[in-house]
Amino acid sequence: MDRRVSLKLLGCAAAVAMLGFGSSAMASDAKTMTVVVKEAGVPWFNILNQGLEEAGKEFNITTTMVGPAQADPAQQVKLIDDLIAKKVDAIGLVPLDVKVTAQAVQRARDAGIIVITQEGATQENKTWDLGLMSSQAYGEAQMKALAREMGEEGEYVVYVGTLTTTGHNQWADAAIAYQKEHYPKMKMIADRFPGADFIDQSSKVTQDVLQTYPNLRGILSMGSNGPIGAGNVLKQRHLEKKIALVGTVIPSQAEAYIKSGVIRCGFLWSPKDAGYGMVALARMVFDGKKIETGIELPKLGVAKVDDVNKVVEVNDILTIDKSTIDALIKLGL
């Protein structure tokens, strides 16, 4: 470790590269990896960095995280070019705009650097992308929780941010399809409602929905402000026992609602696991492991591998309820 630090201080990038060459066949020889995130200093990526550091220690990879001061894809390109000049062994990338970063990623690959992306399944030229969850699994997990809380019967509604928010609507599609297939006694009583990006709009939608459908038994929100706005209304009207509220939530925002039972169950994915997984995946590539469906990523579970699009997908969905929320908030989520 000391030797590596002093080498870095001297700026002996060439020596670092040689070290990498010399013993590339050996498992867990020291490597360097720098992850370029969307924006430096925001809470989400600070937590991602915790995952990088943890996995870095475990897999003998020196990790650092960099990111533009403002979410700007051109700045990401500049950072990648700097890293190519520095001759790191691996670059992690959470791309802002896959088109803008495509050329820089190619330059990195040409220089023999492996590139692991996250939230970048469509990034061209990458080595692998790590997907923490499929839209389908995420939507289904939320529907399963809603069905459990509703006793698998009754009327429910679904909220999305807007009717064109891609992620929300894909999750909603999966959730609704799963309900139709598995819970015939449940019924989506109206088309999905927009408004889940804002607390006030979600409250308003909830008020209107309660007026219109007095037999409502469940609300499923894909946007994270939806459960808060709906929860405010349910709490005010003392309807939290009658109506099951489930959806995507930010733990620190939803703490009081989860603990009081207004929000029965929440879902999210973990930036810490994202960081951890990127490093773990990089180590597998360094070690020359064959990456194929069924391979197990430490902590994240068994992966499904799409060899054409170069995507490694696990199903690492966070469930937020009374038993898990304290630990998640402590993590900084």
Partner: peptide
């Protein structure tokens, strides 16, 4: 208008 559309069960679309 917005309240009425929901009450009438008109689709969000």
């Amino acid at each position: 208008v917005q309240n009425g559309l929901t009450l009438l069960g008109v689709s969000s679309y």
